[in-house]
Design a binder for these strands. Structure first.
Lengths: 137, 137, 137, 137
DNA sequence: GTGGTCTAGACCACC
DNA sequence: GTGGTCTAGACCACG
């Protein structure tokens, strides 16, 4: 688990933490049940205030990505599907629309966008496979 | 020129204006020399504070997309530097990664994501076709 | 909108705010679109730090009860059902179980519990009716 | 004497123990003079740190519910003040209100809530019947 | 004016 | 040791 922060990006630090942990979970680097680094040491390592990390973890918990047990630590959650399929698809569709607009600005053809998506999906799948291989549990 | 604002997206309103105008310029809806609506009527139409539109125009000018001629109005400039293909692809790839992570957390399969993308692309194409039909100009 | 805090209850202040606003919304005292008191004045009135109120509002937003528009204020949301029926029922069932256990301890018969629930539901319905009557919009 | 802990509820574990023992005492499941399980086996059975059970027992003693006799064990004391019916009903009514608010936000109809309560009551009754059958003691 | 982020430091409850 | 709450005060982006 390696987090990299960019203090100049304008993106809130706590959100950078949130997104990187979500990405690690999605890529298989963090599996359900895994424990996250505890707040204080992580804050120290990242040269950030304790509360900033705490806010990131709180956000992750409210998004249902992790589970925090006061006095024990924070853990990656088993993911139970809470939203109904339609709602989930709509959320993603909304994000896709933003990408499409952006791609259109940048004069990237529709078919190229699709193939780009396939390539990135493959990259993620590879990562997950590698993680499975490294820690066959 | 039709701007659509989303007040709930969290994305700053002035940036939505900036991006949509840039998009229209990139897509050919606005051509070099075309005049933009003046601040006051546009603000009224969008139900937005005049400062917000002014800020958007200022941002566009500082990015070299438009040119304001005091007392006359604002005009689209000759198009600025277009990024190299690789760079543009990388930008979009980065955005796609974020969507992929999100889709994974929402337990949406890879293939479903691809088909969702295709469907949204089709929807956009339809829209464009309809616009061309309405304003054959 | 009148909030009353109990600083000795052990219950976090920000949660007291959250619960009272949720209750007001459920009882009809706050309707979709209504604006909430802004953070700073409310904090002053409640003799609480600004951040405490902000945390309460953030929690309300993440629960989908309110909508915050930076620079404008916070508003009660139109409620769109996000979770699917099953999941919602399960959440409530879980809370009911806790009450049942408690009632059982206190030697309150099943039938009495049901009639107690009916009485409280009626009380809420009355409140809502009164609010509708006071502000027939 | 059957204790059920919920590690995810946010409610401190030691308080869950305290409340359930108080409840059992109030309901007559534990009578004055009855002995409580000793700390170590109970901690083992509940999969909890011994300190947690010890803290619960200390709390119970300080509340005058139990009495610890060094070297012998812990016993239920002559009963403290049993709450009047009204007071007990009010406690439960207060908890029901919280559930009603929650149900309202989840858009669950009043009648559905009542039927949900009935269903959960039945489930509990079934459980009790099964327990009686298994341990006819 | 609004809300949002971050820091710093104190205190608490829990395990 | 863990996470959670609250305070106080600074700075920023937005309208």
């Amino acid at each position: 688990m390696l987090l990299e922060l960019n203090f100049k990006s304008g993106k809130p630090v706590y959100l950078q933490i949130v997104d990187q942990i979500k990405a690690a979970a999605a890529a298989g680097g963090l599996k359900p049940g895994d424990s996250l680094p505890t707040i204080r040491p992580l804050a120290e390592q990242l040269r950030v205030n304790r509360n900033t990390v705490a806010k990131a973890y709180a956000e992750l918990e409210s998004q249902g990505v992790i589970e925090t047990q006061a006095g024990r630590g924070c853990f990656i959650k088993e993911n139970g599907p809470l939203l109904r399929k339609d709602a989930r698809r709509e959320l993603v569709a909304h994000e896709l629309d933003a990408v499409i607009v952006q791609a259109h600005h940048l004069q990237i053809e529709d078919e190229e966008l699709v193939s780009l998506l396939r390539r990135r999906l493959d990259a993620f799948a590879d990562q997950r496979a590698r993680h499975r291989h490294e820690q066959p549990a």
